[in-house]
């Protein structure tokens, strides 16, 4: 069974259990963001329902990370609004697990893996994690296959190891929504494959909703149940097979000067 079919089935199960008005996990309505003269997002709207796995794709400078910031409440749009679970993101931090881009990571900061994971539990930096926090962090690290990294300094971790620790941090408090901003940047193919595997297992176990920014169109097609093609505005939102078509991608990627969709991506999508 494909990932799309599996997660849709999960979403339907949830819907039948709760027949009242269903609040989308992520609601984005007419969002417009402008930095100076540059329109970064323009009239972006979509709803992401419970149990879905969304891949947000688009060329560099398409506004993907800006959209993530709007969704997380880190950036207030000039137009429109975004809501998580029907509320401002700032009101529901305990329900969100966020994995930022690894390239923002500061390797000079003295920290161990367990300390970073504990930030996901107590929402501040631990001076000394308690026994209970250490156990919970250890369980989260074990969940992502990184239990051997517990006391390793973050500065000594490879890109793939760091990615696992960040993911452990994000899922430590078992959030209902996991949001990842280009988590596969700087990691090799196997680590990227492991990441999708871990996310799918987490989703299958908890029924959580996942949204991820990625440049990997083939991975988006294979793993996601919904795809958002973005380049300042929405060029497509829906099932991967419907949205990741040559015409749609040609239109979206062509807007930032690409004359054509990269050959490798076209090949992967056929």
């Amino acid at each position: 069974m494909s990932s799309a079919a599996r997660t849709d089935e999960g979403a339907q199960r949830v819907a039948s259990a709760a027949p009242q008005r269903r609040v989308p996990v992520l609601h984005v309505h007419n969002v417009g963001v402008r930095f100076g003269d540059a329109q970064v997002l323009d009239d972006v709207s979509f709803d992401l329902d419970e149990g879905q796995f969304l891949a947000i794709v688009g060329p560099n400078g398409a506004g993907k990370s800006t959209l993530v910031k709007v969704a997380l409440g880190l950036l207030r749009p000039q137009r429109g609004h975004a809501a998580l679970f029907g509320r401002d993101a700032g009101d529901v931090p305990e329900r969100i697990g966020y994995v930022p881009q690894l390239k923002t990571f500061d390797r000079t900061f003295p920290a161990t893996a367990v300390e970073l994971v504990v930030t996901g539990l107590r929402r501040s930096w631990p001076a000394r994690p308690s026994r209970r926090e250490r156990d919970q962090a250890h369980a989260a690290l074990a969940q992502v296959g990184a239990e051997t990294l517990v006391d390793r300094p973050l500065s000594r971790l490879s890109g793939g190891e760091l990615q696992r620790v960040y993911l452990a941090r994000a899922v430590a408090r078992e959030p209902a929504f996991v949001l990842l901003d280009e988590p596969a940047t700087g990691v090799d193919y196997l680590a990227e494959h492991d990441l999708y595997d871990l996310l799918e297992r987490y989703q299958a176990r908890t029924g959580a909703t996942v949204a991820m920014v990625t440049h990997d169109l083939a991975a988006a097609r294979y793993h996601a149940s919904r795809v958002l093609v973005l380049n300042r505005r929405v060029f497509g939102f829906g099932l991967p097979d419907d949205v990741l078509c040559d015409a749609c991608l040609q239109e979206a990627y062509g807007h930032v000067g690409h004359s054509h969709v990269p050959h490798t991506h076209r090949h992967a999508l056929r």
């Binding site: 993101a89 930022p100 930030t119 929402r123």
Partner: peptide, 10 residues
């Protein structure tokens, strides 16, 4: 450590 990450945690 990470201003953005901290802000998502309130």
């Amino acid at each position: 450590f990470d201003d953005e990450l901290a802000r998502t945690d309130g």
